[in-house]
């Protein structure tokens, strides 16, 4: 789960693009329900040829919605949101690019760098039982711990950040 580093030059497997939705961030943050709309729609579209399309769609929507809710809370008011899903075998890759301020970028970089290792599970449990409202870090931890996701950050143009999440939902048992 949750490997942090990704060797861009390593020539990993080729992910075939499946679907992409772009929106002005202003339009996206104008209504909370956009997170639900986009996650549900994209989940249905990409799950059609999975071995259990209904179950896959439910799981994918659950994970993707959390990421979109993270992007929704960005403090940067301008720019574009880009959601792209591609596939290699049993793994679906979400690339979520959205504008953010430098402090947020630093937060994401630190949060993603701490997702590896057994302590991630412990921190996740502490977050669940803690008094504070769920943080963006909890969302990332949950993806790593509960969905066996691998997350990392890639460069994006301007004031944007690209969060990349590999989700192996096809082989995930209950």
């Amino acid at each position: 789960m949750g490997a942090v580093h990704h060797d861009l030059a390593g020539g990993g497997p080729t992910f075939e693009p499946m679907i992409q939705i772009d929106m002005e961030i202003k339009a996206f943050v104008s209504a909370w329900r956009h997170c639900d709309y986009v996650s549900t729609y994209m989940a249905r579209m990409i799950s059609q040829n999975r071995s259990d399309s209904v179950r896959h769609s439910n799981l994918f929507s659950s994970a993707f919605n959390e990421l979109l809710e993270v992007a929704f809370r960005t403090r940067h008011a301008d720019g574009e949101l880009a959601c792209r899903v591609s596939r290699h075998g049993a793994t679906d890759r979400i690339e979520l690019t959205f504008p953010c301020v430098p402090e947020e970028r630093q937060f994401y970089e630190e949060a993603v760098s701490q997702l590896a290792g057994i302590e991630a599970r412990e921190r996740y449990l502490n977050s669940v039982s803690g008094d504070l409202a769920p943080s963006r870090e909890l969302v990332l931890l949950e993806l790593a711990v509960d969905y066996n996701a691998t997350l990392w950050i890639e460069d994006a143009d301007g004031d944007a950040i690209k969060l990349v999440v590999d989700l192996p939902l096809e082989g995930l048992q209950n």
Binding site: N58, S61, N65, E66, E69, A133, P134, E142
Partner: peptide
């Protein structure tokens, strides 16, 4: 329960805990 986001999950969990 078809879907529940973390904000809602945390709220209900907190009450139960």
């Amino acid at each position: 329960l078809t879907q529940m986001n973390n904000a809602a999950f945390h709220t209900f969990s907190r009450i139960i805990i």
